[in-house]
């Protein structure tokens, strides 16, 4: 099996498990979100759909406007329909840009990259398992104070404006950073 198809399968399985989990916990919107992402990954892995590349200037303008609007509406109306619309518009434009074909079909990996990949993969998986373990334990014991999920720990921090500003800024900086490493050189 080629490395790319193995990666694709892992991501698809991960998001599929996420879809089942969201369905099980009764979150209809998140079930839909995860199902859409899983489907998109499935289509992307098959390379059966190509989208036209957006022109760089149009992309920068639309992304910039959407990004600012998303941040503004996060503060004006947290969990509002309007902020949801901007979040959905933002991810739509981002994904359209990220849909381009793989720039190089097969890139040589170094031992250092493989080790790094394995360590970060392990940290990611263990984090998910810790989150799941705490979620199920909290559900069974009705005590999310003893078994807190990441959401339970972060929610009080973002409940006031100071924490919200720090969290949203971090989220925005990470997004811009990801975009910078993803743009085609």
């Amino acid at each position: 099996m080629r490395k790319n198809s193995r990666n694709s399968t892992l991501w698809i399985i991960t998001f599929f498990i996420g879809t089942i989990f969201q369905f099980w916990r009764g979150s209809q919107i998140d079930t839909l979100v995860f199902a859409v992402i899983t489907s998109l990954l499935l289509v992307a892995s098959q390379e059966i759909l190509e989208l036209p590349n957006l022109r760089a200037t149009n992309l920068a303008t639309s992304l910039g406007i959407l990004f600012v609007c998303t941040l503004v509406f996060t503060f004006v109306g947290i969990h509002s329909v309007l902020s949801a619309i901007f979040y959905l518009a933002l991810i739509s434009v981002v994904l359209m840009n990220m849909w381009r074909s793989d720039s190089i079909s097969e890139v040589e990996s170094t031992p250092a990259l493989r080790r790094s990949s394995m360590i970060w993969f392990t940290i990611g998986v263990v984090t998910c398992l810790a989150e799941l373990g705490n979620y199920f334990a909290a559900d069974a014991t009705h005590n999310d104070k003893v078994y807190p999920t990441i959401t339970v720990l972060i929610d009080p921090l973002v409940a006031h404006n100071g924490g919200k500003i720090i969290f949203v800024l971090l989220w925005a900086i990470i997004g811009v950073g990801l975009f910078r490493v993803s743009v085609k050189k």
């Binding site: 991501w11 381009r100 793989d102 989220w171 997004g175 990801l178």
Partner: peptide
Amino acid sequence: MISRVNRIAVFAIWWWVGWHFFGQPF
């Protein structure tokens, strides 16, 4: 990020964090 599937998955995770804490309407 050379791989399309990786790009989509990584951005989906990033976006979902913002969506989960601030964007989701209900």
